[in-house]
Simulated scan of single mutants.
Amino acid sequence: MPAKAAAGRGTLRIATWNINSVRLRLPLLSDLVAALDPDVLCLQETKCPDEFFPHEGVEALGFTHRLVRGMKGYNGVAILSKRPILLRGEDPDWCGKGDCRHLGASIDAPGGPIELHNFYIPAGGDIPDREKNLKFGHKLDFVAEATAWSSARPAQRAVMVGDLNIAPLEHDVWSHKQLLDVVSHTPVEVEALGAWQRAGGWHDALRHFVPADQKLYTWWSYRAADWRASDRGRRLDHVWVSPDLAGALSRHVVFKDARGWAKASDHVPVMVELAP
């Protein structure tokens, strides 16, 4: 759908995807656009300095408005939009690291601007102990800062998306008991993410559509010989909306087929559609 037609349909489709290298997987973006036709696409782990971001290829897909914040080799976030967007200039430098894990923007939308935040939370390494693993400590500190930030400014007409690297609910992982001591589903991480969600009054947009007692995954490890057959997934990718937008949620997609693409990311795109 052309950008003009998308902008005029009266709803807003926001997709999020940990692309795991935007330059390597640029050809897959056309498949994503053909399948989901998002108005806004938030990417994480772009692994690309700003000066090398593939603007021309993205422009050809109809994303005439773009914000990028990247670095060489790892991390990196981007917001690609068919609607006008403005960068938020007042958001924090998380943990003082300048490591390209967040972009905040204002999106032109039906009914008025929407505040959009795109996050890539630290994975946290392999050992769930901040004393033995500095990466895990960084993850917890990042979420604690985000919690304090949300507490000071409760969400209004806002959407938050991204790879949060935490699967909070029992059925967000393939085995709750076996993953309790595995980074991404440990009790300390789950509590931290819950505190962040409560602090901002955020509404879990995916669980708005899929009850908490049903399995829901967005990530499958590269280590699985047959990821679809084993189905040992986790829900690491999230969409949260402010309470005033919860009633505007009309549809969601967890695009599982993307995990089977050639040169796939280990995450799949997730999209929500709002009538705001």
Rank of each mutant, 00 (worst) to 15 (best):
M1I: 15
A7D: 06
R9Q: 06
T11G: 00
A15V: 06
W17L: 08
N18M: 14
V22W: 03
P27H: 06
V33T: 08
A35N: 10
L41Q: 13
E45Y: 06
T46V: 12
P49K: 07
E51A: 14
G57P: 03
G57R: 01
F63Y: 13
T64Q: 13
T64L: 14
R69Q: 15
M71T: 12
N75P: 07
R88C: 13
D91A: 12
P92N: 11
G98M: 12
D99T: 13
C100R: 15
G104Y: 04
S106P: 08
A109L: 13
P110W: 05
G111T: 09
I114K: 08
E115R: 07
E115N: 07
H117V: 05
P122G: 01
A123S: 08
G125M: 03
D126T: 14
D126F: 04
D126W: 00
I127S: 00
I127M: 02
D129T: 03
K132V: 02
L134P: 03
F136S: 01
F142T: 04
A146V: 14
T147H: 04
A148W: 09
S151A: 13
S151I: 01
A152W: 05
A158I: 04
A158L: 08
V159I: 15
D163S: 11
D163T: 02
L164P: 03
I166E: 00
I166F: 00
A167K: 02
P168L: 08
E170H: 10
H171N: 12
V173I: 09
L179V: 03
V183K: 01
S184M: 11
V188Y: 09
A192T: 08
A192P: 10
A195K: 09
R198N: 05
H203G: 03
H203N: 01
F209W: 02
L216M: 15
Y222M: 13
A224C: 10
A224T: 09
A225M: 02
S230G: 03
L236H: 08
S242K: 05
D244G: 02
L249E: 02
D257E: 14
G260T: 12
W261R: 10
K263S: 12
K263V: 15
S265N: 11
S265K: 04
S265V: 13
S265Q: 14
S265D: 14
V268Q: 11
E273P: 00
A275T: 11
P276W: 01
